[in-house]
Design a protein around this nucleic acid. Structure first.
Lengths: 153, 153
DNA sequence: CACAAATTTCAGTCTTTACTGAAACAGGTC
DNA sequence: GACCTGTTTCAGTAAAGACTGAAATTTGTG
């Protein structure tokens, strides 16, 4: 349970520069029962300070990772992972690659066009064109597909 | 010229956590003439200390971003961006997504399977299956395609 | 072997960032 | 308006990391 949470958290921290605690929150919210929890509950579960939870929950909300819920007769706020949280991650990463692709594309004229000169950047552009093409031809994302299905039948 | 270098460097630093100077080196090596340069040349070009170049060139080499060259009658070492540097970036990013996918997959049993319980992680798994499928069906990378073409005729 | 050129390592400074406890704040209830 | 309950902000601490100048090391040359 908590080992798995730690595994995901560590991954987030090491690879994506996400604060460790934010990663733990995320991990916890992926598997906790019930899926929506108060800041206090999460703090207790993962062993972090209440203040830290505030910071990290704000972070996770701002990037659309967790959704904030309020229950009718309660004044505490509950948090849960957004259903399309990971879809956003993937989209973000793809967008990120596209952004680098654009920068490199913009740099092409700077590298000149002599034989062994433009080679570097030409190769780079090729890769990003390849990627773009893949995503252009890709089937719709699961959530999109699901939405289409429901509206249709 | 240097503005473009800075743009790429900033991107690397902000988005990927690459040290700013490593980003500058990378940017410079993408467009400089000639494509291979000594550490001293790079240091001068981007305005960084020689020591910092040593550190960052080692970093860039270790991740396969730049290739180290030695010229016959010279004892200085030259660096240039590897031709498939950006292909590696893309592959790395894809691999990274796959790794998260695996972690989430491993976490599936922890979330239980009750209706609104397994939903979060099931949605996540869907997204990563979608991604895997895309890359499984994708055409070969440009470099691979090129290699195949040459060996064939 | 002495030298010179080029590179790496080291110690130190400086900046950034994560985290916490304590204080301030907001929203209801009596 | 006093008083909970729960949340956010703030100031301070601690740790990590990037960068640099100077010393040490490697590598080639006469």
């Amino acid at each position: 349970m908590l080992e798995w949470v730690e595994r995901l958290a560590k991954y987030c921290a090491d690879q994506d520069g996400v604060p460790l605690i934010a990663g733990r929150v995320l991990g916890w919210l992926m598997i906790c029962d019930p899926p929506e929890q108060s800041a206090q509950q999460i703090a207790t579960a993962i062993g972090a300070s209440r203040a830290s939870l505030s910071t990290n929950l704000r972070l996770l909300s701002s990037v659309g990772f967790v959704r904030v819920l309020t229950k009718p007769a309660s004044r505490t706020v509950f948090y849960r992972v957004d259903d399309d949280a990971w879809e956003k991650v993937v989209q973000r990463q793809i967008a990120s690659l596209a952004a680098v692709g654009k920068i490199l594309h913009d740099g092409t004229p700077l590298a000149g066009s002599s034989p062994n000169h433009g080679g570097r950047i030409a190769a780079a552009n090729e890769v990003f064109r390849w990627m773009q093409q893949i995503f252009d031809n890709a089937p719709p994302l699961p959530s999109t597909a699901r939405a289409a299905k429901e509206s249709q039948g």
